Amino acid sequence: MNQIDLSGQHAVVTGGGQGLGYAMARRMAASGARVTLWDIDGPLARDAAASLGGGSIAVDVTDHAAVEAAMKASEDISGPVSIVVNSAGIAGPAAPLDAYDVAMWKAIIDVNLHGTFHVCRAAVPGMKARGYGRIVNIASIAGKEGNPNASAYSASKAAVIGLTKSLGKELAGYDIAVNAITPATAETRILEQLTPEFIEYMRGKIPRGRFLDVEEAAAMVAWLVSKENSFTTGAVFDLSGGRATY
């Protein structure tokens, strides 16, 4: 494992109790960062954080006021937040758009897009004041390619890409890098929300013939949140195993 120097950094990882978020937090902790895990499942986040020697806060990222309070609490406990990874997200059920449950559509957009907005909005003022920060938003190959019967998820992740590009330009003069990754399906519990048929469809779209390993995503993110990433911002990094066409 390459060693990325994150000593002196404080990282907040949403959805950090499991899956991609936890793997990224673990890699950052191994690189010297203090980590605070945010997750809607408080006990899950607490146990995950304990294994990393970090802190945790139970927070619903769709609640703007709760996110602002969580940011203040995180900084009061562990110091200024210099790294944010927006990994909290939901996939939702597979269904054609004309039959998609309206409440579920709104819930997916609320978590994946509005949640990312809320967290960035809470983190950016402090980063601007200090003239430094690193933000990574977890989008998806679905945001670039679109997945059939997953219009809500695809739309939410496409919007995260747009948000990333816009915010990256806004903050380019502050030494704040804002980038996104677009992973293909990873071996995480999010697969439990999908049918076996849809899972096999997704696997079949990946030229490498397998799903993403969470450690592969963590390795890319560790560099993106480091001081070594001093130029690239507003960019989208592909983790699709060859699936992406652009």
Rank of each mutant, 00 (worst) to 15 (best):
V67T: 08
S82E: 02
E68T: 09
P93M: 12
P96H: 12
V81W: 03
L97P: 02
K72H: 07
A91D: 01
A70H: 05
D101S: 12
A65R: 15
V102K: 15
P96T: 14
I57G: 00
V85D: 02
V67P: 03
N86Y: 08
A88E: 03
A91G: 06
P93A: 15
A69E: 02
A103M: 08
A91K: 10
A70P: 01
I108E: 02
A69T: 06
T62K: 15
K106P: 00
D60R: 15
V59H: 04
I77R: 15
D98I: 11
D76C: 08
S56L: 03
N86H: 10
A103V: 13
T62I: 11
A70W: 00
E75C: 14
P80V: 08
V67G: 03
H64L: 07
A91E: 02
P80C: 07
H64Y: 10
A94G: 08
Y100P: 06
G89S: 09
V81H: 09
Y100N: 09
N86C: 13
S78R: 14
E75A: 14
K106C: 06
V59M: 13
A58N: 07
K106D: 06
E68W: 04
A103D: 07
P93F: 06
A88R: 13
A94M: 11
M104W: 05
A91V: 09
A94N: 11
A103Q: 12
D63I: 12
V67H: 05
D76W: 05
E68P: 02
A91R: 09
A58Y: 00
A99H: 08
K72N: 04
P80E: 05
I57W: 02
